[in-house]
Design a protein around this nucleic acid. Structure first.
Lengths: 260, 260
DNA sequence: GCTTTAATGTTAAAATTATAACATTTAGTG
DNA sequence: CACTAAATGTTATAATTTTAACATTAAAGC
């Protein structure tokens, strides 16, 4: 290693600290060395900076795009999710006040909300908030508290009271497990209060889950299946699965597999 | 414009929502069109996605690297901000519970927090929360409410009560204006309650402002100058400016201009 | 169903970026 | 001060990305 190299990287890191990119040629000029030297600094030394298309960007830096490639699988997985949300979208109307649950299931829905004139979204998830914050037509209410990184969501002891004060119209709930006997469950206990409060206040409750969640039980049970008005899912078999044993289950919507 | 194009972009946006990059060739395959079409989508339509070195990355997305080029001036401007925060950093100690104000001033501080073993950060700003959420060693408490896009922060009527419940150790406050007579002010009224509550509860209050804020008055006054224990600023003239008229002002820290 | 236009695809050339090999400079050592 | 080794610079070449022009296909209107 090399002291001068480390100094150069520190300088560049400072310049990039609050975002933005710096062209390799400018970085070289800034440090008064050749482009090749900067290149070598980046490959030789251990740094938070990546070179992407001739530009230096912060990688693996808090809150900043990590530079890694999405695999094709990962990318195509979004397609399935996208279809699921497309169906849930049919239930959303102009002017609604929506409760959006945490997790990744409902994320594809959010960008679609830009097509409405005016909506309100209530959430306790950071990733949901970020997506909604970018939409000028959607009023965002974030329920704060202590941050739980695993679910990218917040928990607090007055979550229930905070939710009950809001005029939530429709609740879109996701889950990690759905079982006819035991009901609907998730991984984290701090999610129970907001989910239950939302289900209690909302006029209409939608459970949005892909079929892999059926017949699965997770640690934190939060609702019975018939607390929901609609179950939106993505596989043909799911309705039968739910209806067997002669049980009454809510309306089930399965997006047709043939989507353009 | 074109509906199909918008759909493709929404799809790609979803795929990129949680960070990472997607190669143009994979994006084309995912959408089942040619690379050229994706290229055109990105240049024709208004999108949060940028093409950088053949890879799609999120740009201008909350908490994610905005893709713009830093001019050499800008790059050195970050150095100034960084130095300002570097000085404020000297006041932070292991185990502190920090209140971090909204705005861009304190952002360079946040990445530095990774060097501590354990901290707690309380904030009502989305950009701050995003930066802190990425730090595994920092406990994050976000004070939620209605989102105000202009300041990337939340406002609610029980902000004061929520802050008083927390054991905040040190408050790092930023401002848009500082005036000897009128005191310290900001742009948005919803920021007043959290700032005041934090100043009231914290054991130590730091005002972190660059010198351009002096002798400036903004719509929402929230504190007097001597409500603070320390003023951290970045210009030699500032202390004199504050001390004239024989007024008592808090300890002032000016980062030395001579930094390697 | 024909015409027209918009959308998409294809190809080749230009520009840019990455890699590798070798030349030169600089710093340290006896 | 020469010698050595590390660091940096230079150049040429290869790979990739961007741009532009034109061909093809699909959609919309009459």
């Amino acid at each position: 290693m090399n002291g001068r190299s480390a100094l150069r990287l520190a300088k560049l890191q400072e310049a990039l600290a609050s975002g933005g990119t710096l062209h390799l040629r400018d970085a070289a000029e800034l440090c008064d060395v050749s482009e090749m030297t900067i290149r070598r600094d980046l490959t030789t030394q251990d740094t938070a900076i990546s070179l992407l298309g001739g530009r230096l960007v912060m990688a693996n830096y808090p809150g900043v795009t990590p530079i890694y490639d999405l695999t094709e699988q990962q990318a195509s997985h979004y397609q399935a999710k996208y279809r699921l949300c497309q169906r849930a979208l049919a239930y959303i109307e102009e002017g609604d006040t929506l409760f959006i649950d945490c997790g990744s299931t409902l994320m594809p829905l959010l960008s679609q909300l830009s097509h409405f004139r005016e909506l309100t979204v209530v959430t306790y998830a950071l990733n949901v908030a970020n997506a909604v914050a970018a939409l000028p037509n959607v009023r965002l209410v974030l329920l704060g508290g202590l941050f739980y990184a695993t679910s990218q969501s917040f928990g607090s002891d007055n979550m229930t009271a905070a939710i009950e004060r809001l005029g939530i119209n429709k609740a879109l709930i996701s889950a990690a497990g759905v079982d006819l006997e035991r009901g609907v469950s998730c991984f984290h206990f701090h999610e129970v209060a907001p989910k239950q409060a939302a289900i209690a206040t909302a006029m209409q409750c939608l459970l949005v889950v892909d079929a892999s969640k059926f017949s699965v039980i997770r640690p934190a049970y939060f609702a019975a299946l018939d607390d929901f008005d609609v179950v939106v899912t993505d596989e043909e078999g799911a309705p039968q699965l739910l209806k067997e044993n002669g049980r009454v289950v809510p309306e089930i919507v399965v997006p047709s597999v043939t989507v353009a």
